[in-house]
Simulated assay, not measured.
Amino acid sequence: MMDRAAARDAATAVPGVPRDAEGPVFREPWEAQAFAMALVLHARGVFTWPEWAASLAQEIKRAQAAGDPDTGETYYRHWLANLERLIAVKGVTTADTLHRYRDAWDHAADRTPHGQPIELKPEDFAR
């Protein structure tokens, strides 16, 4: 479960976070998971909220320059892209490792029946 106080602090510190009176709101579970990962990495000192906000603003500008209509529906896609880029820059992981896991998740999703949980298996990394 997400720490409500930390989520509220993040939603206040980072402009543009979709929220209601109680804090951040999410359209899909993966959005909440990406948000929570950023909370944990911030709490561990990987980045400050001002650093995150500046980096996220750059990510959104890049997406807009590439044609993103910026209607709000893609906000957490930018959040996730920023998370991936920032943790690679900070040395938490590498871009190669991120790509390896993304490819493994794609493979696992392809073999998983609709509505079933996706589970990574060693063979998903063999591709």
Results as ranks from 00 to 15, higher is better:
1 M>W: 04
2 M>N: 09
2 M>A: 11
3 D>I: 03
5 A>Y: 02
5 A>V: 11
6 A>L: 15
7 A>K: 02
7 A>W: 06
7 A>E: 04
9 D>R: 15
9 D>C: 04
10 A>S: 08
10 A>Y: 08
11 A>W: 07
11 A>M: 05
12 T>V: 11
12 T>Y: 10
12 T>P: 00
13 A>Q: 10
13 A>I: 08
14 V>K: 03
18 P>S: 02
18 P>D: 03
19 R>G: 05
21 A>W: 02
22 E>Q: 13
23 G>A: 06
23 G>K: 06
23 G>D: 08
23 G>P: 09
24 P>W: 09
26 F>Q: 07
27 R>D: 14
27 R>H: 10
27 R>V: 01
28 E>P: 00
29 P>W: 09
30 W>F: 09
31 E>F: 07
31 E>M: 04
32 A>L: 05
32 A>G: 11
33 Q>K: 07
33 Q>R: 14
36 A>P: 00
37 M>W: 08
37 M>A: 14
37 M>I: 04
37 M>C: 12
39 L>V: 06
40 V>R: 13
41 L>Y: 10
41 L>Q: 06
42 H>G: 09
43 A>Q: 15
43 A>L: 04
43 A>N: 11
45 G>D: 06
46 V>P: 07
47 F>K: 01
47 F>L: 03
49 W>A: 04
49 W>T: 02
50 P>H: 03
50 P>L: 03
50 P>Y: 01
51 E>P: 01
51 E>Y: 07
52 W>M: 06
52 W>Q: 07
54 A>Y: 04
55 S>M: 01
55 S>W: 07
55 S>E: 14
61 K>R: 15
62 R>A: 14
63 A>D: 13
66 A>N: 11
66 A>F: 01
66 A>P: 02
